[in-house]
Design a protein around this nucleic acid. Structure first.
Length: 462
RNA sequence: GCCGCCAUCGUCUAGGGGACUAGGACGCCGCCCUCUCACGGCGGUAACACGGGUUCGAAUCCCGUUGGCGGUACCA
């Protein structure tokens, strides 16, 4: 594959959304797969909505996703001189003209000339700069994903490419920037397809070479509407906060609008790089389905070694629950063991603390759990369990020994296992769900276990 | 309104004229495993938007309709 020059060019008007993340990923996969480069450009020419905070947030999100770039970030606003230069050329050569026509004027024009008729302004001394679009002919967008789309010039308005004060507008700046950056492939969302002829026309007026285009299908929320907060985690930041692993997010969003030839669902980043091809990208819009991401995240969590999971959990807690992070950091050994026994029970990093935090802190017993399992019968079982566990020497308090003791008790009492395990579970973790009871008890340790049982029994502590 | 893009299970998709009684994954349902929750295993549910063509033959090609989406800013 020949090396491709790609670019990811977000506008810093908000957080990096899932759609933007996918665009970034696709560009990155192409760059890495072809031995090419990826340029990061920040399109901040919208002075109203662009903020440095958003820039920082986008860069942070890309780093978290482990998507890196070879050049940039290039600030579009810092290229004003270049833009002005080319704008002047266009004006001088008569490819563009100034016009004070407003959106209202365009509307009025269409009312008399027909709605499908492109607007043509009269050159004036002042006003915004419009690119002259010919009456005849058409501009054809050759899209790697969609094939050819023909835009007839007579339907196109003379687009405004710069404000009256000379500052460039998107469709102009983007054409110049892609040109100067030597971009070979413009891979972006389908919402830009209608913009492409304008950019092509700018390039043509400049006598400049044109890149290849690939317009990705748009991403929607579960209801088919535009993705928004309402749909849960819609930005990369939110995904991170929800406890997803970056590699899982990469795998999942790669599958939105693309599928490997082998029909594989779980693909490592290397496999993604090796297998991704623009030619296999779908033309249909896709919906973001968090249920599948959750499942996939679980698969990735289970594929981690306990030390790796421990590290991920710690990083997550540091970000989301500093208090819990401190507790967990105080006992790295236990954290690793906790990771081991929790691994197959969670689908996100966020579930770790609720499920296994009891290994690091005392917890109130949930009222419903107490009601259900610490009644007269449960209390009796719990006393028996306490006795059985107390009989184990502290240094023998391993999983096997705990299991033996408890299983023997179940047998002796001739009750269902749950009749012994559930009250014990509730006593040590405050809830009816936890990692396996033998592992949990053993990890908690003899002393802590007995103490918590006593508290639950009302025999000690408070 | 106008210009344009798109249309296979609920969702992501495979499919590029006969291999399709339409395959995979998630979800959902059932069974098994089982100390809770999960994991895992097995099985099941479920789709070619509609109408015309073209063809011996269409999910696959063409046209139309409908629907969804995008653009239509001195936003990006």
């Amino acid at each position: 594959m020949t090396a491709m020059r790609l670019r990811f060019a977000p506008s810093p008007t908000g957080a990096l959304h899932i759609g933007g993340a996918r665009t970034a990923l696709f560009n990155w996969l192409l760059a890495r797969g072809s031995g090419g480069q990826l340029v990061l450009r920040i399109e901040d020419t919208d002075r109203e909505r662009s903020t440095p905070q958003n820039v920082a947030q986008i860069i942070d999100a890309l780093r978290w996703l482990e998507i890196d770039w070879d050049e940039g970030p290039v600030m579009q606003s810092e290229r004003a001189e270049r833009h002005r230069q080319e704008l002047t050329r266009l004006l001088d050569q008569g490819h563009a003209y100034r016009s004070s026509a407003t959106a209202e004027d365009v509307k009025a024009y269409k009312a008399t000339h027909g709605a499908e008729r492109g607007f043509r302004g009269q050159p004036e001394a002042e006003g915004a700069v419009r690119l002259r679009v010919g009456e005849e002919g058409a501009t054809v967008v050759h899209d790697v994903i969609r094939g050819e789309t023909v835009f007839e010039h007579r339907h196109l308005d003379d687009p405004v490419i710069a404000r009256a004060d000379g500052t460039p507008l998107y469709n102009f700046a983007v054409a110049i920037d892609d040109l100067d950056a030597g971009v070979t492939h413009v891979v972006r969302g389908e919402d830009h397809l209608s913009n492409t002829p304008k950019q092509l026309l700018v390039l043509e007026a400049l006598g400049a070479p044109q890149p290849l285009y690939a317009h990705l299908p748009l991403l929607h929320g579960p209801d088919g509407k535009k993705l928004s907060k309402r749909h849960g985690a819609a930005s990369v930041q939110e995904l991170r906060r929800a406890g997803y692993l970056p590699q899982a997010v990469r795998n999942y969003i790669a599958l939105l609008g693309w599928g490997s030839e082998s029909d594989q669902t779980i693909l490592s980043t290397k496999e993604l790089v090796d297998q991704f091809a623009l030619e296999r990208v779908s033309r249909n819009p896709a919906r973001f389905d968090e249920a599948k991401l959750r499942w996939m995240n679980g698969v990735y969590i289970r594929s981690l070694t306990p030390p790796q999971l421990a590290t991920a959990v710690e990083g997550f807690l540091e970000h989301e629950r500093p208090d819990a992070a401190a507790a967990v950091r105080a006992d790295p050994q236990r954290l690793q063991q906790a990771a081991r026994i929790t691994q197959e029970k969670v689908q996100s990093l966020a579930e770790f603390w609720p499920l296994s935090g009891f290994l690091f802190e005392d917890r109130e017993i949930e009222p419903r759990a107490r009601e259900r399992w610490l009644d007269a019968k449960g209390t009796m079982s719990l006393r028996e369990a306490r006795r059985a566990l107390a009989a184990i020497e502290p240094q023998d308090f391993g999983e096997q020994r705990v299991q033996q003791a408890l299983e023997a008790l179940v047998q002796r009492l001739s009750v269902k296992p749950g009749q012994v395990y559930q009250p014990l579970r509730v006593a040590i973790c405050g809830s009816t769900t936890s990692p396996g009871i033998f592992e949990s008890v053993s990890l908690l340790g003899r002393e802590q276990t007995l103490r918590r049982v006593d508290v639950a029994l009302g025999d000690g502590g408070a």
